[in-house]
Nucleic acid binder design. Sequence first.
DNA 1: TGTTATATTAACCATATGGTTAAACCAATC
DNA 2: GATTGGTTTAACCATATGGTTAATATAACA
Lengths: 206, 206
Amino acid sequence: MAEKIVSSRDAILAAALREFAARGFAGARVETIARAAGINKAMLFYYFSSKEGLYQAVLQEVMAEFFKKVQGLITPPLTPGEFLERFPKLYIELCASNPDFVRLVGFDLIQNPDNICSVMAGIITRMSEFKPHPLFEVIRRWHAQGQISEADPVQFMMNVVALSIFSFIGRPMVEAISGMRVADDGDFYARRVTSVVNVLKRGMLK
Amino acid sequence: MAEKIVSSRDAILAAALREFAARGFAGARVETIARAAGINKAMLFYYFSSKEGLYQAVLQEVMAEFFKKVQGLITPPLTPGEFLERFPKLYIELCASNPDFVRLVGFDLIQNPDNICSVMAGIITRMSEFKPHPLFEVIRRWHAQGQISEADPVQFMMNVVALSIFSFIGRPMVEAISGMRVADDGDFYARRVTSVVNVLKRGMLK
DNA sequence: TGTTATATTAACCATATGGTTAAACCAATC
DNA sequence: GATTGGTTTAACCATATGGTTAATATAACA
C-alpha cells in the first residue's frame, strides 16, 4: 500500500490526546501513549523531542481546530440574538463530541493558564481575520446601540462561555448535590442548549 | 509549650492542599509537600498511609468546609430572587478567597468525577439537614408557583454554578481571546458578581 | 524511675519513568 | 546493486519517586 492508514505521527498525536486528557500532563505515561499508538516509545521521541514537546503539539493542534470552527461561526455579521443562539449551540455540541478536548483544555487552564493563553494568542495571531479581534468590538457596538444590557464585553463573553462549557465539567458536581443521575443521552445536551440560550437571551438581550 | 502552633498533621494537610491544587494528584510530589510542611517525609506516611490517602483527606476536609458554608446560606427560606443574589455572591467570594479549593476540585472533577461525587455524597449524608436535599424541592416549588422560568432544577442549578465558578477557571481563556488583561484587583470579582446576578435574575426570574 | 504510646528522623529500597543509543529496516533513487 | 534518508526497534541508563524500616526522641504516667 502506498500510504499507511494513519501516519505514525498522527497515531501518536491521537493517542496522546486521549492520554493527556485522561490523566493530565504529569499523570500521562509516555509508554502508554506509545503502546496505544501501536509504536515503539522511541518513535515518540523521534517525532516530538520530549514529552513536553508532544504535549504542546497536541494542544496546538486541538486548539487550532477548535478556533477554526468558532471562527466560521462569528465571521458573518450577526445580531446579538443570533449570536446568543448559535454560539452556545456550537460550543456545547462541539464539546459534547470532543470530551477529550474539554478535559485537556480544562487541565491546562487550571494548572498553567499562561501556557494555554500564549497558545491561543499564537493561533489567533496566525489567523489574520482574528487580529484585532473583531468580536469584542462588535459586542461593544451592540451595547452602544442599546441592543444588549451588558456593557463589558469580557463579562458578556464570560457569561456565554461559562454556561456553555460548564455543562461538561460541572455536571457530575450538580449530580452529586442533587442526588439525581442525569441521563447521558444526546437529549441532555439538547435540553442544556435550550436552557442556556434562554437564560442568555432573557438575561442579556434588551 | 503545651501545644504546637500547628500540629504536624495540619501542617501536612495545608501544604498538601497547596501542592495538589498546583500540580494535580499525579504531578504533586510527596517530598515537596513534606518539605513545605517542615517535616520528614516519613511523617506524612505515618499520619496518612499513602499519597492517595493524603489526597482523599485533603479533599474531604476542603469539601466539608465548603458545604458547611453553602448550607448556612440555603438553610433559611428564601425567595428565588434572594437566592439568585446571595448564592453567586457567596460562591464567587468563597472561590476568590480560596483559589486552591477551586483548582483542586477542578482537577478532580475533570479527572475523576466519580470520586468527588462520592466524597460529596458522603458529606451530604453526614449533614442530616441535606438528606433528601431540600434545595431541589424548593426550586421545583418555585417553578410550580410560577416564580421562575426554568422547570428543571438541575438546569437551574447548573446555570447558577456555571456562571459563578467559571469566573476563575475560565478567566484566562476569555482574556486570551479578547487580548485584554483583566485587572486582578478585588474589583473584578465585584463586577463579576454584578453581571452574574443580573443575568441570572433577568434570565430565570419571572 | 521505668514503662508505654506517640512523634520524628535518617537511611534505604524497588520500581517506574523520561529519555538515549546504536543498529536495523525499508523505500526510493542513482 | 549500492547509496541514501527517513523510519523503527530492542536494549539501556540515570534519576526521581512512593513507600519502608529501624532506631530515637518526647511526653505522659504508674
